[in-house]
């Protein structure tokens, strides 16, 4: 038990509360929406910039000769992403691969925070006066939706750009039933079909990581000390799988959705 002054439900609640920051003006204008989750923003930014800066310095020193071990490792990652993009994405768009890489490494790192003991940072930061701290940004819906909505915007942008406004409209009206008189049924179906993409992307990632985190918190609540290992270790090992799979799924589906946006369904 981390904190004797909290009972179990308070403990869980504490661990699932973000560190809020707001401004009176925002609060007044936007209400509850005007809040910023500082822990989410800071953690995700630190993780993302750390890995991207590493890539950046590697790229600056990159050689086409014999690579260093680190460069070799990163190149394996790059080639893995490039292979996925090449296999899935038919068109040629220089944005897709960097986008996929960013999504993959960023989500992977944010998910990996799930393996840090749930109490470690909240206790450490609590000592310096930070009341709440959630280590895993992907357990915050804002993070997953931010990415999936960005991808959704790209889907809409490329659908219109590649197929033309008319072509995209036709696709929305003529699918899944290829008759114009079915348009009143096709349109709502198509809209749901399109909207399901960002919603499923975001909720899948969020759901997996959030539930994982909750289980870690519940395990931490067991009063018998050795149960931490008996339950925590298998779950952590299993969770490593989830961490990779979820990062991979988000990346692959992004590529697939953008690929669909590029090709006409005729």
């Amino acid at each position: 038990m981390s904190n004797e002054t909290l009972d179990s439900s308070q403990y869980v609640h504490h661990h699932l509360t973000n560190l809020p920051w707001t401004h009176a003006f925002l609060q007044k204008k936007l209400g509850d929406f005007g809040v910023l989750n500082l822990d989410t923003l800071i953690m995700s930014f630190i993780l993302g910039s750390a890995i991207l800066l590493l890539f950046y310095f590697l790229a600056r020193r990159a050689t086409s000769g014999v690579p260093s071990k680190l460069q070799n490792f990163v190149e394996i990652l790059f080639e893995f992403i490039q292979k996925q993009v090449k296999e899935t994405f038919q068109g040629s768009n220089p944005l897709i691969a960097p986008l996929a890489l960013t999504i993959f490494v960023w989500i992977l790192l944010m998910n990996l925070m799930d393996l840090i003991p749930v109490d470690l940072f909240s206790i450490l930061l609590g000592k310096v006066g930070v009341p709440y701290w959630r280590m895993v940004p992907t357990t915050d819906l804002n993070v997953t939706f931010a990415m999936s909505l960005s991808v959704f915007i790209l889907i809409l942008y490329y659908s219109v750009k590649e197929k033309g406004a008319l072509g995209f409209a036709k696709e929305l009206l003529m699918h899944p039933f290829p008759y114009i008189w079915m348009a009143p049924i096709n349109l709502p179906l198509s809209i749901i079909h399109e909207l399901a993409k960002p919603v499923s992307l975001a909720l899948r990632l969020f759901g997996n990581l959030f539930s994982g985190e909750v289980i870690f918190i519940l395990i931490a609540l067991f009063p018998i000390w050795w149960l931490q290992w008996v339950l925590g270790l298998p779950w952590a090992i299993f969770h490593i799988l989830i961490i990779f799979i979820q990062a991979f799924i988000f990346t692959i589906l992004t590529i697939v959705y953008l690929s669909l946006a590029h090709e006409s369904h005729e």
């Binding site: 995700s44 890539f55 960097p98 960023w106 915050d140 804002n142 960005s150």
Partner: peptide, 23 residues
């Protein structure tokens, strides 16, 4: 959901831009 959403979207866009431009 709150304003963090937009903050994250901006961060995401920056990261993607950075990757595409420099990495």
């Amino acid at each position: 959901l709150n304003l963090t959403l937009f903050g994250q979207m901006i961060t995401f866009a920056l990261f993607v831009w950075f990757t595409k431009r420099f990495v």
